[in-house]
Design a protein around this nucleic acid. Structure first.
Lengths: 255, 255
DNA sequence: GATGGTCTATTGGTCAGACCTAAGTTACCA
DNA sequence: TGGTAACTTAGGTCTGACCAATAGACCATC
């Protein structure tokens, strides 16, 4: 009897309910208006105290809402007179930082990073070959020059390396891919920073590969670009992983 | 005299300096400690009032710092007794939301989304064929079943479609790719939601392609998986773009 | 003895008001 | 005319108070 009663009563099912915080409500409202284009780029939002009177919320609530939007890259906040919150469209930076957080936070294996780069970068090269501008090529050439300098430090080499890879992504003119590649490159940079496998030979091969890919992009030859980039990142990944194996996985331990 | 004095004094050169906000300082400090693993998952941070006494900052400053970390997905905040800020590792959700923001905010062309998917998804399929588990296959099979139902609504079809694509990404066991694909799929879903080109024929072809790719993944045949997925997403993109052209770019106008 | 009410302690959420600091604007004086 | 002092506007921080949600202990009722 009691059992059936219990069954009857628990037949009514309710999921856990959301009770949004006041600051979230404000943030959501503003976010929607920004994303739908109601506020265009660089539009100044009303001053905090004005928002307080409009929304009848307290200033701390208003400020927390603005802080949320700031972290999400939707507004940029300046202090001082004529300051305030200015509408911004989130760009690759927002993607790059969040991806970096995931990479660092999840202690993602170097292998997975390299894998992901193998997925994305050949396609970037292909798009770059189609859509590259003269400015894009300048960036790549500058990076190539820095890479070719055999007397530079390891740090300088790696930085130039990152610059080149990000440069290719930028040349693809796809903000999504650019953001991902920026984060990936940074992560791979720090992961390989202490690697001892980057010797003169590796540097020479890298420089050569980059040059050849750059030429394909310059010549607007997508097929060659994708093919060469594929080979480049794949062989680089192989090389890194070989060293990783030989040195008995010493990196993951430091977590 | 005054001139030389002035010159001497301006010999000391200082660049523009950054004056970080107090809340940023706290947020950065906590973020580093979380990311380096000093605080493990689910560790409760001290209560706000405790942080106030420890840091000698005001409560509003402490709260803004916590809000920053919350938005970045580094802590989860619960109210009430035994509540507080609990350490969390940012996951694919964080990537998905920030990518969604960029997609919505930049009013990214549907073409670019499809392009990006063409870059990523074949590689996901390849990895899925290598690393898929039995559970992964169950998800794909369930989605395929829903897709095959010819009497379902358009919304149901698209949802099942998303489930399948995300399922493939999950089967790749790469958090990065999974996060990106989740965001991408959602965006493509909403972008194609109102499209009239999804007729019975498209649904039939989609179901067929998904089945064939699923089989390649089940058989752990990476080559077939990547080839079939490539063809699938490419032809889908072509179909969408053809409709786009025919209907004279009506979507971008509503921005 | 299971259900539900009440109390209390803890902790985040919100509010109000004050003051500090950054940065344009204006006015005034040398 | 040019520089600087005063003013104004806006965000940044602090203080202290109270509200709201929640967990746990205890008690009342059926």
């Amino acid at each position: 009897m009691a059992d059936t009663l219990k069954k009857d009563r628990s037949a009514i099912q309710l999921g856990p309910m959301e009770v949004p915080k006041a600051s979230d409500v404000l943030a959501n409202e503003l976010r929607e208006r920004i994303l739908t284009g109601e506020f265009t780029e660089n539009t100044p939002l009303p001053p905090e105290r004005e928002l307080v009177t409009q929304t009848r919320m307290s200033r701390s609530t208003v400020r927390e809402a603005l802080r949320i939007l700031e972290v999400q890259g939707l507004v940029r906040i300046k202090a001082g007179r004529a300051g305030g919150a200015f509408v911004q469209r989130p760009s690759k930076e927002a993607v790059a930082t969040s991806v970096s957080l995931v990479i660092r936070g999840q202690q993602i294996r170097l292998a997975a990073l390299l894998e992901t780069r193998e997925a994305i970068e050949p396609f970037c090269a292909q798009l770059a070959a189609r859509y590259r501008t003269a400015d894009d090529l300048k960036v790549l050439d500058a990076a190539n020059e820095a890479i070719a300098d055999e007397n530079s430090t390891l740090a300088a080499f790696l930085q130039a390396n990152v610059d080149w890879h990000v440069g290719v992504a930028i040349a693809s003119h796809n903000e999504l891919l650019t953001g991902l590649m920026t984060a990936l490159s940074r992560a791979i940079y720090t992961a390989t920073e202490n690697e001892r496998f980057i010797d003169a030979e590796v540097r020479r091969l890298t420089a050569k590969a980059h040059l050849s890919i750059t030429e394909a992009i310059r010549a607007q030859n997508p097929e060659a670009a994708v093919r060469r980039m594929n080979r480049h990142v794949h062989s680089y990944a192989q090389a890194v992983l070989e060293v990783e194996e030989r040195t008995e996985i010493s990196v993951p331990d430091e977590a």
